[in-house]
């Protein structure tokens, strides 16, 4: 086994661990926003690390792997932001565990404002 193969395998193992943790996070978290949090971060680093590992195993693919990593870094947060915003607009409000429920939900005022504009 060459040194490149060892580095590549280590990256792939790290990537799969983070992808697994992302899946576990989606299973354990209470509402969609927390699930998105766990899902986005873990899958971004997981997929990046996995693709980088593939690049190390096959050095002629390295540049392509880097391009894919850049695209993942740009598109993954945008998709999770779109999901979160769409869910809020459908009035699936986030679970709030603390006692101070009034101040903990700053986006609610925007939704209420929009509702008023629609009615009037």
């Amino acid at each position: 086994m060459s040194i490149m193969e060892i580095i590549g395998s280590i990256f792939i193992i790290i990537g799969s661990i983070f992808l697994f943790l992302g899946g576990l996070g989606i299973y354990r978290m209470p509402d969609i926003y927390n699930r998105l949090q766990a899902g986005t971060k873990a899958t971004t680093l997981g997929a990046m690390s996995l693709i980088l590992g593939v690049g190390f195993l096959e050095p002629s693919w390295m540049l392509k792997a880097l391009i894919i990593i850049i695209f993942i870094a740009f598109s993954n947060p945008i998709s999770s932001h779109a999901l979160a915003r769409a869910n809020y607009k459908r009035k699936h409000f986030p679970v709030i565990l603390s006692d101070d429920k009034e101040n903990m939900d700053a986006y609610r005022e925007v939704i209420e404002q929009e509702d008023k504009e629609v009615k009037s």
Binding site: R28, M29, P30, D31, Q37, T44, L97
Partner: peptide, 26 residues
Amino acid sequence: ALVKANLDVARRVLSPSLPINPGVVK
């Protein structure tokens, strides 16, 4: 920040008590 975020997610997901206090700020 990305690596820190992942370690943070790993810590929260793996700890049995699920230490979260979610909310929306602006």
